[in-house]
Structures are given as C-alpha cells and as structure tokens.
Amino acid sequence: MLTNFLVAVVERILNTALVLDSTLIAKLKPVTQQRLLIDIRDWQQQFVVVFTGQNLHLYNTKETLYDCMISANIDTLMALQNPAMLTQLIRQDKLDLQGDLNIAQGYSNAFAAMDIDWPEHLSRYIGDVPAQQVWQLITQLKSQGDKTQLKLNNTITHLCQDELAVTIHPIELEQFKQHTRQLKGQVAQLEMRINQLLQSN
C-alpha cells in the first residue's frame, strides 16, 4: 500500500508537469497508449507507464503485458552511462530490453526536454524565499536525475544503432524502401534490355 501511495504521488507530479509544460503533450503524442514496463529487479517491483492522450498513468503492477520493457537492478538502471556497456550488460543478464525501443525513447525524450519554471509556480503557493530553498534542493536531486536521464537517452540511442539492431528505425525503413525502389527500377531496365536482345536475335 505504501508503494501504491508513492506511485500515486509520482503520477501526480508527472501530471502536474503535463499541465505546466504545454508542449509535453505534443511530445508524448507518438507514444500515446503505449505501455512502457519498467521492471526493477532488486525491488521486485514493476511499474507501467501509459500516456493516454491527456494524462500519464503510472501503476505498480504484476501484469506482464507491455509494448516495451526495461528490466534491471536499480543500480544498473542508474548507472547506465556508457552505451558500450549495454551489450555487455545484456550478455551478462544484468539488463533486459524487449519490445519497441522507440517507446522508451519517446517517453524519455519528452521528459528530457521538459521546460517548466518550477520556482515560479512554487512561489505562488509558498512565497519566494522558501520556494528558492525548496528549489535548490530539488535542483540537486534533479541534476542527479538528469544524469540518469541523459544516460538513458544515450543508451537507447546507442542501442538503436548498436550491433544488436533490435528494432528498425523509421529512417532505416525509408532507406530500405528507397533501395528496393532503385533495385526494382534496375531490374525493370535489365528486363527490357534482355527482351531487346531476345528480339534482335
């Protein structure tokens, strides 16, 4: 029940962020209705995040249905610095990634680009000085969080380009389509030439 309560608080904060930064909704649009499951192994807890178009929903759950899943110990999750480590971590069974990684990236990008003047909003409720103090505390915490965020971002970007090639990026797909089109053209030309040759014989 305590976890449940804390999760509810975090969900509230995330949704406050949605209200305060009006660009977030647009940024989250690509991941609408996509379930990101975060499995923190050593806590033996799983969390699912879903953006439903207006709100973020965060639940502590035992369900195993997801569109994208990240599983690791909390230390591993926090320490994801060097993208090169990823493959290694996966091989060592310390990290698991499943599903469409663009979803994890979608959620993480949206919050990385968050632009909210928290002290300004805070001071409206508790006055300027306390707001500043609270803000300093939060900034310290946030810088820690940012590092993690950045790591996660790099990590995911890297992973998408990594030898693992777990998922096909839309750009890759576009390139592939283009290549196919070229190839098709060339085959058609070849066919024409063969036909010409056959006829001239």
Binding site: N4, R35, V48, Y59, T61, E63
Partner: peptide, 16 residues
C-alpha cells in the same frame, strides 16, 4: 479508497 481503486486498476490488465 483511491488507493484501493488504483490497486484494482493495476491488477486489471486493461489496455487499448
């Protein structure tokens, strides 16, 4: 009761 209901949703497996 809000937490009890949250637990219900978390156990529901409900999706799109």
């Amino acid at each position: 009761h809000r937490l009890w209901k949250r637990q219900t949703i978390a156990s529901s497996g409900v999706r799109k």
